[in-house]
Write a protein that binds this DNA or RNA. Structure first.
Lengths: 151, 151
DNA sequence: GTGGTTGCAAACCCTTTGCACGGCA
DNA sequence: TGCCGTGCAAAGGGTTTGCAACCAC
């Protein structure tokens, strides 16, 4: 899951952006921190190795990276904005009771949804994307993995 | 879609809450405005008939109503919080380019998802709810008389 | 009566903005 | 060198908070 600095540089350049230390640092931090960091997480991480970086700059860089699809934004109800370094299409699993958000990806599911919406088109509406928010909680007991779906 | 004041009162009381004019007014406004109002929308509406109601109170009342499951919160990336008076399980359709959010409800879809996740349980995770965010845009077509999805 | 609610305004927090300076291409 | 990008600090805007007064039960 770790991407080399050179690969990140290339990604920035390929997006048509100038490669700056700040952009590189933010992009690296989003990828390194992994679990959908908040801006606070990112600032904390960034200040270790780039003490000079300004908060406003981090916000601007994040906006730029999102606009150029190098990262994406994630948000649930009543939460601050988080960021995601993985740009492949995927869904999100929200762990109630902890601040964890994990990714969920399955082609079979996406095909299922695609089929469904092909048959059940919404009149006057063109679907760009269908995202799932899978909400629930982690189970302490490892044996108990195969159950329960909301009624 | 319109619910009587008495029914709303009853809902508040059944939730174990005191029935106050403010709670009644906010709950009524959420239901009356329908299309996932923001706090701003609600305040505008409320000031017409309840000029005295305080902004802070509206926020507190909304929190209370959400906590007691009389309404729910809706949010997408980069948006302010909105509220929903419909508590039945349903999904949301986000209309890019306008601030419209409509509801989507279909039992066949829910059964499909239920089946899917029964077969593809997430290890160590108990699913409470699966929400779809259907993102796309309205098609501008004057021939299309019923271009919005039925609420 | 009395404990839950409200009104009010200040505080808060995350985020955005404006502008002069700095550094990438 | 030209222009995009950054640092900084102040402003913005939605939301929360603290507390005295109020009122639903």
């Amino acid at each position: 899951m770790k991407i080399s600095i050179n690969k990140l540089k290339e990604n920035i350049r390929n997006a048509g952006l100038r490669v700056t230390p700040q952009r590189l640092a933010v992009l690296e931090a989003v990828n390194m921190l992994g679990n959908h960091p908040t801006v606070e997480h990112l600032l904390q991480q960034l200040h270790k190795r780039h003490p000079g970086i300004a908060t406003g700059t981090v916000y601007k860089v994040l906006d730029t990276l999102v606009a150029h699809q190098l990262i994406s934004r994630v948000k649930t109800d009543h939460e601050v904005t988080r960021y995601d370094g993985i740009m492949d299409h995927h869904h999100h699993v929200y762990h109630q009771g902890s601040d964890k958000i994990t990714d969920y990806q399955d082609q079979e599911l996406d095909i299922l949804l695609q089929e469904y919406f092909r048959k059940h088109a919404i009149p006057g509406f063109c679907i760009r994307e269908v995202r799932l928010q899978i909400i629930g909680e982690s189970i302490e007991d490892e044996r108990n993995t195969n159950d329960t779906f909301p009624k």
